[in-house]
Amino acid sequence: MAAPLSKAESSYLSTGLLLSERADGRSLLDYRPITLATGVVPSANGSARARVGDTDVLVAVKLDAVRLDDVVDGDDERQEGKAQFVCSVECSPSALPHLPTDTLPDLSSDLTTLLSYYLSLPSLLPLRQLLIVPRRRAWQLSVDALLLSYGGNVTDVLFAAVRAALWDLRVPKTRNFVYDTPDAADSALGPGLGGFRIERAGVLDHARGLRRPEAADFELEDGSDEGVPLEGRELLPVCITLNLLTPIFYLDALPAEEACTPCRVILFVRPSGALCGLHRVGDSEIMPAELKQVLHEAVKHGQELAKALNDRLRDPKIASLGSNLGAFS
């Protein structure tokens, strides 16, 4: 991703890394200061901006109530058990000005795939909370990210912003109701009340072959502008990228460091320490023994990162910093 280095520069940096002396004096496992702000896109249901060094990522999450029949294949039971989402990561040309513009779509698409992978992780998105009317209506999340500028370690910053945006997300409270049609012959539903609105949690037994009443629907609860936070937001996994330079690994790479360390492993770690995802980047191969050695330590750092981010997000001072998207501090 970075501009080319000379052989001398590359060698200076790698030798330094192997001696645990980095270009800016950090230790191998030090992160640069991370700045987070939430509520930066007022028109979204949740949003956040994360900055580390010159890397700057903006994420907005919106909720749309969709008809499940429109988005789910009728008989695909697997899909029914999944939360609905669409996502994208765009790398703006100003993020990587030295790269020709035609390589940007590749980078954007790689990151979009990774984001999609993250959002599909089991139990990441709370299906139960996102379902409005079971089998009928659900909240579909759109998670869209924009890489505004690049200063190394895009993936970790991207997911820090995604987590923060999901933390900021408020799911509107809804109330379900069921319309009974005049000629409902369903005895199981009780006497037809013809055209009246009945409030009922509308789960109907498909398997028993009963006919659904028409237009099961929902409405937003009055007076609740806030909505509720996403369930399980403290448990959202963090992303921690390991830059591998045998026999060491290091975190939070600068652009020049990334240029001389093409081999990377991306880990998704829950605050509990559970490793829930792993993704390899780069062309070189990794020996399992190498990886095993670093995983334990890496996961520990992932946990620390998760705790630090959660603490930061809980601090009421950073919530809703407003929509000033100018100089960010």
Partner: peptide, 24 residues
């Protein structure tokens, strides 16, 4: 409202907003 040098890594940058419209 407007702000200059919002992207220090560019040669020049600015952010402008007219009401709710925001462009950099």
């Amino acid at each position: 409202s407007a702000e200059l040098t919002t992207h220090p890594s560019a040669d020049g940058s600015a952010s402008v907003s007219h009401g709710l419209t925001q462009v950099t």
